[in-house]
C-alpha cells in the first residue's frame, strides 16, 4: 500500500513541478529553484515506491511495461534534475521536457501494474549495466532535446519572450550537443553491455532483432548528428531538428518495440 501511495505522491509532485515550470515560462517568471526542489521530492518518493516494489517482487523494474514506464519516468527526471542542478542557467527548459513526462505518467496510469515474469536470463549483473547505461543515454538525450528546443522556440514571438533570460542560441546549441555526445558514449556502452549479456543469455551477441536493429539506427543517427554539427556547423535550429530526430527514434525504439511486442527482445528471453 505504501508503495502505491508513494508512487501517487511522486506523480503528483512531478505534475506540480512540470506545471510550475510551464506556468513560469508562460508568465515570463521562471521559478527554477522551486521546480528543482519539487522534482527532488518527487524523485525521493518515487525511489521509495520503486524500492518497495523491488523488495516485494525480488527483482528490479525491468519486466513489464508498467515497470519500464515507471523506472524511465524516474530516470528521465533524475538525469534532468541533475542537469538543472549542474547548469542552473537552463532550469526553465524543464518546461519543454515536462509534457513528455506527463505523457508517460498518463500511459503509466492506464497500464496494468501486475508483476510480470522474471526470466532466468535476466539474473545477471549485465542487466543492470545494460539498462543503467540505456537510462543515462535516454536521460542525456532528453536534456539535449529540452535545451535544443529553445533556439527553435525563439523563432516565435512567445518563445523569444519566454526564453529571453536564457543564454544565447549558440551556447545552448553547444550545450545540447554536449549532452547528446555524452548520450552517444552511454549508448555505445549500453550496446556493448547488451551484447555481452546477449552472448551469455542467448548464445549470440548480436542478431539484428528489431530492438537491436533500431538501437543501431539510433546510434547511427546520434553519430550522424554530432558529426554533421562538427563538420558542417549548421544553424542552431538545424541542431534542434537533428536532436529531435535522434530523440524520437531513440524513444520509439525504447518504448515502441517493447510496446508492440509487450516485452523487450520478446521471444528470446
Amino acid at each position: 500500500m505504501m508503495e502505491t501511495w508513494a508512487l501517487w505522491a511522486a506523480l503528483t509532485a512531478y505534475a506540480l513541478a512540470g506545471s510550475l515550470a510551464i506556468a513560469g515560462i508562460w508568465r515570463g517568471q521562471p521559478s527554477g529553484r522551486l521546480v528543482l526542489t519539487l522534482l527532488s521530492g518527487a524523485l525521493a518518493l518515487h525511489a521509495l515506491s520503486l524500492g518497495l516494489r523491488w523488495a516485494r517482487l525480488g527483482h528490479g523494474p525491468f519486466t513489464t511495461m508498467f515497470e519500464i514506464l515507471s523506472s524511465n519516468i524516474f530516470s528521465f527526471t533524475l538525469v534532468y534534475a541533475a542537469a538543472l542542478w549542474r547548469f542552473p542557467a537552463i532550469r526553465p527548459t524543464f518546461a519543454l521536457a515536462a509534457p513528455l513526462v506527463f505523457l508517460m505518467m498518463g500511459w503509466l496510469m492506464v497500464t496494468n501494474p501486475e508483476p510480470g515474469v522474471f526470466p532466468p536470463t535476466f539474473d545477471t549483473g549485465w542487466l543492470y549495466v545494460h539498462i543503467g547505461f540505456g537510462k543515462l543515454f535516454m536521460g542525456a538525450a532528453l536534456v539535449a532535446l529540452g535545451v535544443s528546443l529553445v533556439p527553435a522556440m525563439r523563432l516565435t514571438g512567445l518563445g523569444a519572450r519566454a526564453f529571453a533570460a536564457l543564454p544565447d542560441d549558440t551556447s545552448l546549441d553547444e550545450l545540447a550537443f554536449r549532452f547528446l555526445s555524452a548520450g552517444l558514449v552511454f549508448d555505445t556502452l549500453m550496446l556493448a553491455a547488451g551484447a555481452i549479456w546477449a552472448q551469455d543469455a542467448w548464445g549470440r551477441y548480436w542478431a539484428f532483432d528489431p530492438l537491436e536493429t533500431w538501437s543501431l539506427v539510433t546510434w547511427l543517427l546520434a553519430a550522424l548528428a554530432i558529426h554533421a554539427r562538427i563538420t558542417l556547423r549548421p544553424p542552431a535550429y538545424a541542431g534542434t531538428l537533428m536532436i529531435a530526430l535522434v530523440f524520437t527514434v531513440a524513444y520509439a525504439t525504447f518504448f515502441g518495440v517493447p510496446f508492440v511486442t509487450e516485452r523487450p527482445h520478446q521471444g528470446v528471453v
Binding site: F208, T213, V217, L220, L221, A223, L224, A228
Partner: peptide, 16 residues
C-alpha cells in the same frame, strides 16, 4: 562520412 552513416542507417531500417 555523413553519407555512409546515413546509408548504413537506411540499410539497417530496410533489413528489419
Amino acid at each position: 562520412t555523413l553519407g555512409s552513416i546515413a546509408a548504413t542507417a537506411a540499410a539497417a531500417v530496410a533489413s528489419v
